[in-house]
Design a protein around this nucleic acid. Structure first.
Lengths: 108, 108
DNA sequence: ATCCGATATGTTTTATTTTGAATAACGCTT
DNA sequence: AAGCGTTATTCAAAATAAAACATATCGGAT
């Protein structure tokens, strides 16, 4: 018998980030677009776009800056707040992992 | 911004208990039947029955003892293993709660 | 043997989510 | 003005999940 857990960040407006959104943000940062990040995660563009849109709607300051048109058609990049959010959340995830390990030690 | 979390117990066969199943087990213990527990939780009997059935299927030893027929038509009761499982899980939940509180303190 | 009330399960219907296709909007480049 | 590639949004279709309904089963009591 072992424990598994999940943890995420919210504010009054709604959910900010969880494991799935973190993966998506990281890929957006790497690839520069929602489209290619979605493809890399094998999820639909629509779903990825909805996630990003929801995060931006909920966050006090935008997490992601999206640009439309232009030479490459547009793209998206993380704002400083977005990068900070990932950083913060990763720390939380790390602590969560060791917490779950600790719990499992007691369940032996 | 604040953290929220979830935690549950599994084994190789599958999930054993999480928040929802705990509520259900507690009500089964109080009421003596899946039917009335389901009614109290406003969930369908079918769903409650499936939960209990899955728990029993996954657990090494049965969590719940169900009896069919008889003077009251039957009923269900927690086995000692079931009572122990609730106890164990509640401790885990308590620790989880204080862990999330600690995380939130760092997010201030 | 029949009734009762709960467990047990199948079938059907309804509701909700997810997906896919299609299209518009945008702005830089040529 | 036309082309490009991405963001942005709508709409119908498909897939999943949930609910509702209907029976069957069981065993003690009468």
């Amino acid at each position: 018998m072992n424990a598994k857990g999940n943890i995420w960040l919210e504010n009054k407006k709604g959910m900010l980030i969880g494991p799935g959104r973190m993966y998506l943000l990281e890929l957006i940062e790497q690839t520069g677009s929602i489209k290619s990040a979605a493809a890399a995660l094998k999820m639909s563009y629509r779903q990825a776009w909805a996630m990003v849109s929801d995060m931006n709607k909920n966050a006090a300051k935008p997490i992601i800056q999206k640009t439309k048109g232009g030479v490459q058609g547009g793209g998206t990049a993380l704002t400083p707040e977005g990068k900070q959010l990932i950083k913060t959340y990763k720390k939380v995830l790390t602590k969560m992992d060791s917490f779950v390990l600790k719990i499992n030690a007691t369940l032996k």
